[in-house]
Simulated scan of single mutants.
Amino acid sequence: MPTITSTCLATTTWPPLPSKPNKGTPLRYRIEHETRLIYDGPIWEHQCELRLTPRQDEWLRLLDHSIDIYPEANPQVLRDGFGNPIHTVSLLPRHTRFVTRMRAEVETLRANPFAFEPLPLDQESPWLARRLAEEPRLRLFLGRSSLTPNLAPMSEAYGPFPERDRQLPLGEAIMKAMGWIQERLRYDPDATHVHSGLELVFQEGGGVCQDFAHLLIALIRGWGYPARYVMGYQDPGNTPHQKGAAPNQATHAWIEALVPGVGWMGFDPTNLLAVNDLYIPVAVGRDSTDTPPQRGCFRGGASERMEIAVRVTPIRSDEVGV
């Protein structure tokens, strides 16, 4: 298999994070992500996008990264409209398997996500108005989709939904809303599927990290604040509320909200946590349809079967000579 090394990818800086980050002692992780697509007949003219490269910023350093691909291909490395690094693959010959193996080492630095002074409540709205005027593309994260809909029409059947607590800074109000989600929904890998909307989530009374993230995004956007979906990895021990989930089984999902005076701040509604150095972001978007680890199309009438294996391993300081 050819190896594509991507340690030189540029830092993503959209939009800026807090000017004085609270960086603690770095945590280091090794990530291995293998996807096998197996077909029951030949396919050809296979086009595929891979979102498997951790996003670099001042909270995360990408120390090493490679992607092995079978059959052999020469991927193009670029960024999508949200700044996510992607590899695009084109396989013209006939084949019955498509295998990708990603390996990376990263350092994470966000030790304390609450190490900032929140803006006074009466300054939140002016701050947000200025940011939206300066960065019009932030309005992308105010819009609705089938996965992050306006919740008002569902209120009679499934509400009432949490209103913005105007006595609390936005970050604390979001933490309070996550508590409501935890009370309302259970983590259940069998309740929903990858294309499930929130109505099915409410009907089943549960779902997975993707569903919890979509619900929190819908709530925050309903309050008038930008929120975006994040796909990535987490420390395998960081799953206190994911009963029934196998550690290292797959990617994880959480959200980021544009918190006045701070910038993008991460929240994990599945585990009722603010995002810290136990999280490794890979891609952001309006909802999960913008962030698939792998997406493609091909010619041929074969059926596809997918096998995924993910391993996130904390690296001890004595392993790196620190």
Score class of each variant (00 low, 15 high):
residue 49 E to Y: 03
residue 135 E to R: 12
residue 124 E to N: 02
residue 123 Q to N: 10
residue 212 F to T: 13
residue 181 I to E: 13
residue 162 P to K: 07
residue 36 R to D: 08
residue 212 F to W: 04
residue 269 P to E: 06
residue 273 L to P: 03
residue 170 L to W: 07
residue 286 R to Q: 15
residue 280 I to T: 10
residue 273 L to N: 11
residue 43 I to R: 07
residue 182 Q to S: 09
residue 228 R to L: 06
residue 47 Q to V: 13
residue 260 P to L: 04
residue 99 V to C: 00
residue 272 L to P: 02
residue 188 D to H: 09
residue 126 P to W: 00
residue 120 P to C: 04
residue 61 R to S: 14
residue 169 P to S: 08
residue 275 V to K: 01
residue 110 R to N: 11
residue 275 V to W: 01
residue 308 I to R: 02
residue 242 Q to I: 07
residue 270 T to M: 02
residue 38 I to Y: 00
residue 289 T to G: 00
residue 152 A to I: 14
residue 33 H to M: 00
residue 204 E to Y: 01
residue 81 G to F: 08
residue 74 N to Q: 12
residue 157 A to G: 08
residue 164 R to F: 08
residue 126 P to V: 07
residue 54 P to D: 11
residue 241 H to P: 00
residue 228 R to D: 13
residue 264 W to F: 09
residue 322 V to I: 09
residue 94 R to L: 12
residue 321 G to Q: 07
residue 163 E to V: 14
residue 7 T to I: 11
residue 127 W to L: 05
residue 70 Y to L: 14
residue 312 V to F: 00
residue 222 G to A: 03
residue 130 R to C: 05
residue 250 A to V: 14
residue 22 N to I: 02
residue 76 Q to K: 12
residue 188 D to S: 13
residue 180 W to N: 08
residue 18 P to F: 00
residue 24 G to C: 10
residue 39 Y to K: 14
residue 18 P to D: 05
residue 295 R to C: 11
residue 235 D to R: 06
residue 275 V to M: 06
residue 227 A to S: 11
residue 285 G to N: 12
residue 59 W to K: 04
residue 134 E to V: 13
residue 134 E to I: 12
residue 67 I to H: 01
residue 39 Y to R: 06
residue 141 F to Q: 10
residue 122 D to F: 03
residue 246 A to W: 02
residue 106 V to M: 00
residue 34 E to A: 08
residue 123 Q to W: 04
residue 16 P to V: 14
residue 27 L to E: 08
residue 173 A to W: 07
residue 20 K to S: 11
residue 165 D to G: 06
residue 83 G to Y: 02
residue 307 E to S: 13
residue 318 D to A: 12
residue 255 I to Q: 01
residue 73 A to D: 13
